[in-house]
Simulated assay, not measured.
Amino acid sequence: MKKKFSGLAIAQHTVLAAMCLIALFPIYWMVNSSFKNESEIFTSSLIPLEPIFSNYTYAFEQMPIVRMMFNSFGVASLLTLSQLATGLLAAYALVRWRFRGQGFIFALLSLTWLIPFQAVMIPNYVLVNQLGFNESLIGIVLPFAVSTFAILSLYQSFNSFPRVLIEAACIDGQSDFGILTRLILPNIKSTVASLGIILFINGWNEYLWPMLITKKMENAPLQIGLRMFVNSDTNMWGSMMAATAVSCLPILLIYLVLRRQIVDSFVRFGIK
């Protein structure tokens, strides 16, 4: 039995190792290509024969990479904070009070989650354009300030919180805001933190809407800036790989610092 179990374990680890290599190889190829010259970049060499650093210097000269990093971080942070704030207030209201039409509102919120963003993209663009928020972080964040995913996730946590404690806090004279911030949040802070990580990753990866709102590199997040760079320098693949490698560093550092919390977040909520 031990030999069979050992053989099965070896096979499982072999498959896992192969899957890890398959997942990591594109990243290695990106970094490898960033150090190749234009004549070598399309070869099958796994290492640069004549490493160069000019791809990185050219990318930083042609793109405001640091500015775009701050734009991406600002968009992701603002989206996370706004969605958590609105989600906490909406979920608390649905759990705290009983009123006519509550079930209808909850069903309506659930249905809005099923509507693709492309269906409301044009009205949102017209509204943001009329408000004059083009080429700004507010224009990117505003249509996503409320997240149905955040509301429904927090609703489940709030609904499982003992109502006896909430009623006791009301008898003691606590306000609703005090009950939310002093009683409920300290007891579900791990859930809120996990949800915040998921929302931050979703905000960091947002692509379609920022592409419509921003037309200038200095106002664009990283993903949109890279697309603009491809359009302007189609044949500069070495510099493109260099810029892409640099753009991966912030989210990689965040993952290294918060890797345990990120894994717990995906286990708790699943991949959206």
Score class of each variant (00 low, 15 high):
Leu108Tyr: 14
Gly101Leu: 04
Tyr92Glu: 07
Ser82Gly: 09
Ser82Ile: 09
Leu78Tyr: 01
Arg67Phe: 08
Thr86Ser: 10
Phe73Glu: 05
Ser72Thr: 13
Gly87Leu: 01
Met63Tyr: 10
Ser110Gly: 12
Arg98Pro: 05
Leu94Ser: 04
Glu61Cys: 06
Tyr58Gln: 12
Asn71Trp: 07
Leu94Arg: 00
Tyr92Gln: 04
Leu81Asp: 08
Trp113Pro: 03
Phe99Gly: 06
Thr57Gln: 14
Trp97Asp: 10
Ser72Tyr: 08
Gln83Trp: 05
Arg100Glu: 15
Ala85Pro: 07
Glu61Trp: 15
Gln83Thr: 00
Arg98His: 11
Gly74Ser: 12
Leu111Gly: 09
Thr57Ala: 10
Pro64Trp: 07
Ala93Glu: 14
Trp113Asp: 13
Trp113Cys: 08
Ala59Met: 09
Arg100Lys: 13
Gln62Asn: 12
Met68Cys: 05
Met68Ala: 02
Phe106Asp: 05
Ile65Asn: 00
Ala76Gly: 00
Gly74Asp: 07
Leu78Gly: 04
Leu81Cys: 11
Arg67Ser: 11
Tyr58Ala: 11
Trp97Cys: 06
Trp97Arg: 14
Pro64Gly: 07
Trp113Lys: 14
Ser82Asn: 14
Leu94Asp: 03
Leu111Cys: 13
Thr57Ser: 13
Leu79Tyr: 04
Leu78Phe: 09
Asn71Ser: 06
Val75Trp: 01
Ala107Gln: 13
Arg98Ile: 02
Trp97Gln: 11
Gln102Ser: 03
Arg96Thr: 05
Pro64Tyr: 05
Tyr56Asn: 02
Val75Glu: 04
Ala59Asn: 08
Tyr92Ile: 00
Phe73Cys: 08
Phe70Thr: 10
Phe70Leu: 15
Ser110Thr: 13
Trp113Thr: 12
Ser110Lys: 08
Gly74Val: 06
Leu108Trp: 14
Met63Ser: 07
Ser72Asp: 10
Gly101Gln: 09
Leu108Lys: 12
Ala85Ile: 15
Tyr92Gly: 05
Phe106His: 08
Ile105Trp: 09
